[in-house]
Structures are given as C-alpha cells and as structure tokens.
Design a binder for these strands. Structure first.
Length: 516
RNA sequence: GCCGGUGUAGCUCAGGUGGUUAGAGCGAAGGUCUCAUAAUCCUUAGGUCCGUGGUUCGAGUCCACGCACCGGCACCA
C-alpha cells in the first residue's frame, strides 16, 4: 500500500457557526489521519471553509455585517476548532483566498474544450428566495417559503458536460478504483448513474450571485456555481494555481487521496468532482468515506426544536477527549447516531472513569506503593501474561481501523482495558505484596499491566490523543508518543526494565450523574 | 411510485456457507475483594429472534407475501 495519504474534510459553510455535526466529521477525519501516521505513513490533512455561496451573502445581510467581515469572523471560528477539538490538520483553505480563486479559474480553463458550454436555463425564479425553484419547492404553484407566485426567468449559464462521463464514472466506481465507503452508498450511486446523468450548470449570472464568488474566466457576466468552486479546494489548497511542490507531491504523484464527507454531498464528490478532474486531465481521488449525521434526542437538530448541540459549550463542559470518545464510540462511523448528554455521561463514567481511568490509577498506585514506582521486567515469556490478549486486540483494532470502522476499533481497545482489570483481580498484587517470597510474581504482574497500558495509549492516540499522552507519561514513557509507529510500538515488552512510573492526576474524575 | 436497507433481552447491538439449552456491552438486583475514582471482579435477565405461510429431518439464519421504520431517486452544503 502507498506510503502517503492525503486526507480532506468537506470545507465548512460559514453562514452559521459550527455544530456537532461538523465536529463529528473533523474528529473522524482527524482520527483517520492520526491512525495513518501511527502506521508510519506520511499524511497531509486539509480542511477549510466554503465562503462563496449566496447563502453566505444573505446571512451576512441578515446579520447586518459587511460580507467580507462576516466570512472573516466565521472562518476564524472554524480555524479555532483546531485547538478546541485537538485536530491535527496540516492545511486550511478558505475559498476567498486568492490562491483558491486563481486555482478554481485555472481548473475551469483546464477543462477539456467542449465540456463547458453555454446554455439558456429557464426556470421559475422566486424573488424572495433569490433563487430558482424546483417542483418540490412549490405548493400549488407558489413558493413554499414565501407563498408568492414565482416568475419564469431565462438566464444564459455555463453547463458542464457530465453526461459525457457517464461510462467512465460507472467503471471507476464499479471497479472500486474510486472506492466508496460504505458499500451501500456505492450501490446508491450505481443506481443513480444507471438512471442517467445530466449536465449540470456551473455558473450563475453576476446579478443572481450578488457579484460574490469566483468570476468565470473570460466572461465578466458570470460567477462560478459554488460547487465547481468549492470542490476545487482539494487542489487549490495544495497550490494548484502555481503548481507548487505540495500540489505535485500530494495530488499529482500521490495515488492515495481520501475525501471524508457527509452523506448529503456524495453526488458532488463521487460524480461531479471526478468528472471535472477527468476533464482537466488531473489525478483522481482514491476513496470517499461517507459518514452519517448526528441527531439529538432521536431527531434531526433544528433551532425550532431547540435540540441543537453546540460543540464549543459541550467541549468546555466535558473536555475534548470525552467528546471525541463519545462521537467516535457511540456513533457508527458510516451511519446516523444520536447525541445525548445522558449517554455521554454514562459512557464517561462507565468506560472512561471506571474502566480506563481507574485502571491507570490503581496500577500506577500499586507500583508506587509496593515497588517505589519502579517497574521490573521479568524474563520474556513469564506467565501469566496479557500478551495474548494484547496481540489479538492489536490485530482486530487494525482491521477495524483499516475499514474505517472507528466505533468498532474504539470498542476493541476496551477489550484490552477490561482484560487488564480482570488480570489484576485474578492475580491479586495486594496479596503478593504481603509475601516477600513472591516479590518477583508481584513485579511481573504489575509490569504486565503497565505494559498493557502503554499499548492502550498507543492505540488510543488516534481516538483521544490528549488522554493517550497522559497514560503514556504515567507509565513512565518519555519519548514522543506522536512519533510512535504501530508496527514497532505494538511489540510486547517495550517498557524498559527499571522504568519509573509517573503517577499524576486522575485522568477522568467521575461525574455526578445528572438525573433526567 | 421505483430501487435498496433494517426490524434479535429495558437500551445499544453481535449473530460466515441453516443444526444440540439464541450471545455481548450498558442499565437493574445480589454478592466478593480492598490496589484503586463507593472503582474492580463474580452471579443473575428466561427475550413470540416484526408477522404469516413455505422449503427442510432441522431456520433468527433460505424463499414468498405482509407490516413498521430508514436511506436513495440531480443542481439541495
């Protein structure tokens, strides 16, 4: 398998503040990126903001703020998530940056002659919506949101000849050369392609776009359709405009490109985008990972229902790692999942505080109490051992992670944590400590447990990096955790003989469960 | 309407190619230990495996029909 991987999230719309759904995508992509680094691969992880949409212009107007300042402030809010959510992205692209605008225009010009053509678009235009309406927007011939009768309007736009790429897109996806995860999404795409592909419009009149967006090269009357512009972020962020070394390395010469997206924008990524790249003669992505949505209290989040989960306040209340853990563990990676504080608190207490936190605390405490904090490694192969459990867990963890089954991979780590708790219970170090003749047995038992914790911290680094680091330090490791490679770090018995554990604060204090 | 998926213990879900008493985790109840964050560990749940009919010596596991819920069916981030 290739030793490099370029991972992207969808760029976020800046007309509203970040919600927990953004957090899910960022955190999933981040976990994947960190896992790839753990495997020893070179990773470039990019995210960014989509600022050129008409909806953003309207949101700015509603807020009574100049559009430039509006997008600036919102982009900053998304950038700030890097610290707040513990993200490890390498690049951030804003679609209002000149490197993006120039890149999008370059891509437009690079498209095969004839693939972009002008056509008159006729539609029903709603003045209130400032947009063309489709059948489902209409109720008895009136706009469903304004109750007005839309007027027929004609506008000359550019279209992209998607229809010409039908066979190639079909083969690409059917053969998994462009792999769609999960396979149910692939199947949906296949049946969609089978029903026929129509050309799609890729520009708007300047009036309709409010002159906000990327100008169409060579035609002052048109602004690019936001999707044409937005999709190009994956290459403009690498410096496509100037054919930078970054672009050459991560796009042109890299065969391992992964887009992490939500299920609502599959078509753009799996059909429009590859077709645009084919037209421009550029390399294609390798995989598209499609995640589900976060619901709240069992239903879709909405302001009117008042069930919107704000990631910032949630993270401030519980900490980033409990939130990361919950999103990755509770929500099946490719399906919808429900967010509730009650379930978060349950998992926190049961799995983070009781199982993991207490395991670390009891283990390190015993090493301090019984052996002055010093770990003693017995002869290799000494029994009993946690090694068989650890080996199985590493194997299962890897196969789950490789399949992007983040929730399973996370659950699998807890198998080792539970094994370690049971191991302590069965071997009773507190009894061994009372018998000087059993000193070696005691040393061995505590070594096994701490070694399991070392391994747990490595496996948890992609999931809850801050916590992983704390465990790593407490069992006495001093080298940088983020530089570990799984193939080596998974070897049993790497905690050196004579290691001094570093007992520190409780990593997950129990929560007083709020009754609801 | 068409296409696809799902429906298993209170909750969340596992259950290759059909085979003795249907599993896990959580929650709940009881118990144990004492290193530890009243944590750990052990025992306990008797659930029409959505329904009906069928194939079979035998079906949660295959087939048909039905019911319920979910997703897809283009310019919508």
């Amino acid at each position: 398998m290739a030793n490099t991987i370029y991972i992207t999230t969808a760029i976020a719309y800046v007309n509203a503040p970040p919600h927990i759904g953004h957090a899910l995508e960022f955190i999933q992509a981040d976990a994947i990126a960190r896992y790839q680094r753990l495997l020893g691969r070179k990773v470039y992880f990019q995210t960014g903001t989509d600022e050129n949409s008409l909806n953003t212009v309207r949101a700015a107007e509603r807020a009574g703020v100049p559009i430039e300042r509006f997008v600036e402030e919102n982009a900053e809010r998304f950038k700030a998530l890097k610290e707040l959510q513990g993200l490890s992205y390498d690049g951030f692209i804003r679609t209002t940056e000149s490197r993006h605008v120039e890149g999008a225009q370059k891509l437009w010009r690079a498209c095969r002659s004839g693939d972009l053509y002008q056509k008159v678009y006729k539609g029903l235009y709603c003045v209130g919506c400032e947009n063309f309406l489709t059948d489902k927007d209409l109720v008895d011939g009136r706009c469903s949101s304004h109750q007005t009768i839309p007027e027929p309007v004609e506008e000359q736009n550019y279209f992209f000849r998607l229809s010409a790429y039908r066979d190639r897109l079909h083969d690409l996806i059917a053969s998994d050369r462009l792999r769609i995860v999960p396979v149910t999404r692939k199947n949906e795409l296949m049946s969609f392609i089978a029903s026929g592909l129509e050309d799609f419009s890729v520009s708007r009149s300047c009036e309709r776009a409010r002159r906000w967006g990327v100008p169409v090269p060579g035609d002052g009357s048109q602004i690019m359709y936001v999707w044409f512009d937005a999709l190009s972020n994956y290459i403009t962020g690498l410096g496509y405009a100037g054919h930078d070394a970054l672009f050459d390395f991560w796009w042109v010469k890299n065969s391992n490109i992964l887009h992490v997206i939500g299920k609502d924008i599959i078509r753009f990524h799996a059909l429009y985008w590859p077709a645009m790249l084919l037209s421009a003669g550029l390399n294609l992505p390798r995989e598209i990972f499609v995640h589900g949505f976060v619901t709240s209290g069992g239903t879709k989040m909405s302001k009117t229902l008042g069930n919107v989960i704000d990631p910032e306040t949630t993270i401030r209340k519980y900490g980033i790692d409990p939130v990361r853990y919950f999103l990755l563990r509770e929500i099946p990676a490719t399906e919808d999942g429900d967010f509730s504080y009650e379930r978060l608190e349950k998992r926190y207490n049961a799995e983070l505080a009781n199982s993991l936190g207490n395991l670390l605390n009891r283990s390190v405490s015993m090493v301090e109490r019984y052996q002055y904090g010093i770990l003693r490694r017995a002869l290799p192969g000494a029994e009993p051992s946690l090694q068989p459990a650890a080996t199985a867990v590493v194997r299962d963890y890897q196969s789950a992670m490789d399949a992007y089954e983040l929730h399973s991979a996370t659950a699998i780590v807890w198998q080792l944590i539970n094994s370690a708790n049971l191991f302590i219970q069965e071997n009773k170090p507190w009894e061994l400590s009372k018998n000087p003749n059993r000193q070696q047995e005691l040393e061995h038992v505590l070594y096994e447990v701490c070694e399991a914790l070392r391994l747990v911290s490595v496996l948890l680094w992609p999931i809850i990096p801050g916590t992983a680091e704390k465990i790593w330090r407490q069992v006495g490791m001093s080298e940088p955790l983020e530089e570990q490679q799984l193939a080596v770090a998974a070897t049993w018995g790497l905690l050196p003989d004579g290691t001094k554990v570093q007992k520190s604060e409780i990593i997950f204090p129990r929560l007083e469960v709020s009754k609801s």
